[in-house]
């Protein structure tokens, strides 16, 4: 039963990822795309966690943590670039 519910949740989060993908393509500005990509990062973490529960493996939490850190740093770096035209001053 739990497996069935989890499969349903995969579909829901997958749909969310598709919507993000659409928002990233639609734009219209750079920052809209950036926001969509950042949301995509977070949603993929959610998907990884759900998959971890589904398989009963706790290994991919490290992967999720890495994705979280990379997503945060890259988003902030691009924002800095848009603000100043430079990342490290």
């Amino acid at each position: 039963m739990l497996e069935l519910i989890l499969q349903g949740c995969f579909c829901v989060v997958g749909l969310a990822l598709l919507l993000n993908f659409y928002a990233a393509i639609r734009g219209p500005s750079v920052i809209d795309r950036l926001l969509a990509l950042d949301t995509m990062y977070i949603n993929s973490i959610a998907l990884l966690l759900l998959y971890g529960i589904y398989l009963g493996i706790s290994l991919n939490f490290e992967v999720a943590l890495l994705i979280a850190m990379l997503g945060f740093v890259s988003t902030v770096a691009v924002c800095k670039f848009l603000l100043r035209g430079d990342i490290i001053e």
Partner: peptide, 17 residues
């Protein structure tokens, strides 16, 4: 919790679009 969580995730993306 899993269902509520994934619905909220979906809601965030719906708001985005």
């Amino acid at each position: 919790l899993v269902v509520a969580g994934s619905l909220f995730v979906l809601l965030g993306s719906v708001a985005l679009v």
